[in-house]
């Protein structure tokens, strides 16, 4: 296992993919806890589709993909947050509208310029080859910022996630924290998108939080457990992808699903045991 891993890291592109992937999984897992609990998980999915559209347009214009996609996704994050806050029932419909709309724009632009080819596949399902050196530098800097902000704001994020009306009453600017979380999510999604694929990236946000909620009952333990689960699943996924030549993004998602069921079984087992001891 270790030998395989060392062998993998001797390839420059794999080393880059591992570095960026680990950081993105960590960021996604941290933000995911709050997003899932606030029922904003769909925002992550919507943002990845918007990111796909933005990257397609950037490629068509010959611009740097990240330079276009980050501002567009951040703007979309503000919009999606407003939409899902204002009208509870129509919110999810509006998110679907925006995400399919962006997807359509992306597909249209790609087919008009380079035609539907491998590029589209890479955007939708990810490519391990997509990380350049400058991408790595940008990803490391941005992920470090996301992690630092999350740690510094951890207590406030908890207060806002658990009970927004109380947080508002004691004078927290809840709107600012919601926007900030959406903003950080947008950045994380754009960074991870090309490797994981537009259709798969939101699983990095949703799965670790749901997985650790099977076993952990405290916000802090769920957050820490999510981070650990996410990082481990990413590493296992990428090794599987290397060994069996499977697509990286899909492999990571499959490992996440396996982890979810593992935790689910463990919980069922522990409830059984507790019930048996109680009798």
């Amino acid at each position: 296992m270790i030998k395989t891993f060392a062998e993998m890291l001797s390839y420059g592109f794999l080393l880059r993919a591992v570095i960026v992937g680990l950081l993105v999984s960590l960021c996604a897992a941290l933000l995911g806890v709050s997003l899932v609990l606030k029922r904003y998980a769909m925002i992550g999915d919507g943002l990845s589709h918007v990111g796909f559209g933005a990257m397609a347009v950037a490629t068509a214009l010959g611009a740097a993909p990240l330079a276009v996609a980050i501002p567009v996704c951040v703007a979309a994050a503000f919009l999606l947050l407003r939409v899902s806050e204002n009208s509870r029932i129509k919110g999810d419909a509006a998110v679907a509208l925006i995400s399919t709309g962006a997807l359509a724009v992306g597909v249209l632009v790609i087919s008009m310029t380079s035609g539907m080819n491998m590029d589209v596949m890479n955007y939708l399902f990810g490519s391990i080859l997509s990380m350049s050196r400058s991408d790595v530098r940008l990803s490391v800097a941005l992920s470090a910022a996301v992690i630092a902000l999350f740690v510094l704001l951890y207590n406030k994020v908890f207060a806002v996630t658990f009970d927004e009306s109380f947080a508002k009453a004691v004078g927290l600017k809840t709107g600012v924290y919601n926007t900030l979380v959406a903003f950080l999510t947008a950045i994380t999604i754009v960074l991870g998108m090309r490797m994981m694929g537009a259709l798969l990236i939101s699983s990095l946000i949703i799965f670790p939080a749901l997985t650790s909620m099977r076993l952990c009952k405290r916000f802090k333990t769920v957050t820490i457990c999510s981070a650990a689960v996410s990082v481990v699943c990413y590493l296992v996924g990428i090794v599987i992808s290397y060994l069996f030549a499977t697509p990286a993004g899909a492999s990571v998602v499959i490992v996440n699903i396996a982890a979810f069921f593992l935790f689910w079984c463990l919980r069922a087992l522990s409830t059984r045991l507790r019930a048996a001891r109680g009798d």
Partner: peptide
């Protein structure tokens, strides 16, 4: 919802922390 009673009660102090994290 993953939140222990202690975490919930401690969050009552959030306003006093101001910008201190």
């Amino acid at each position: 919802f993953p939140a222990s009673c202690y975490e919930v009660v401690l969050s009552g102090r959030i306003a006093r922390r101001g910008i201190r994290p």
